[in-house]
Amino acid sequence: MGLQQFLIIGAILFFIGLFGAFTKRNTIVVLMCIELMFNAVNLTAVAMSRYVVPYNNNHGVLIPETILTGHIFSIFIITIAAAEIAIGLAIVIALVRNYKSVFISDAKELKH
């Protein structure tokens, strides 16, 4: 396994998530697609941190301070994505109370 495979899988996951987030009608599924995008970013971050960064800095000399930045980045992303989903689900509950439906296409009070 090299860097390319990780990056390709990351890109595929990211664009599946992006496509789903724009086309799905169910709000829960949209939130899941967004989670997929975040996980694609995590995969790319960790792969970059493992394969590219150490050899990019200072002509191949390892710098211990920067080598784990991508891993730490992905931990922050996981944490904040959880907070994002928590608020998302809270708003979905308010939406379901008002519209009696979880489908975002049923919420059409705001005119285009």
Binding site: T27, L31, I91, L95, N98, Y99, I104
Partner: peptide, 16 residues
């Protein structure tokens, strides 16, 4: 109704 619809739209697009 208006407020929750606006909220979910903002949250989804800001997350994307």
């Amino acid at each position: 109704k208006l407020s929750s619809e606006a909220g979910i739209k903002f949250l989804i697009l800001s997350a994307i």
